[in-house]
Amino acid sequence: MSKLSPDELLHLSKLSALRFSEAELRAFGADLEAVLGYVELLEQAPTEGVEPTSLPIPFPTPLRDDEPAEPLPAEEAVANAPERSGTAFAVPKVIDEG
């Protein structure tokens, strides 16, 4: 499996919505490569034709009735908001990437 290029690492941090200094990125990159090096072990696992498992135990499909519950009072819904405007959450403006 592969070594991570600086570009890949940068892309990865972008997808993770994390910012790093160059030194941090190098350090995290090294840690990541160590772990990825270790998980190469999985190449030896006999997984040919094996179904993937996402949940350890099979569950019946739980379905809910369409009965509305009392919503949170708006004050409570936005009580934790770092900033708000009325009962809306306020965030710095959205810039659409063009």
């Binding site: 509305p68 519950a69 919503p71 708006a74």
Partner: peptide, 27 residues
């Protein structure tokens, strides 16, 4: 055309005041 959201029983509304129709899942 249902009364509640896909993954939580918060009501489906239209034109309501902001954040008056939410439950923890919606937030």
């Amino acid at each position: 055309r249902v009364r509640t959201k896909l993954f939580t029983p918060a009501p489906v509304t239209y034109g309501a005041e902001p954040n008056t129709a939410t439950l923890p899942v919606c937030l």
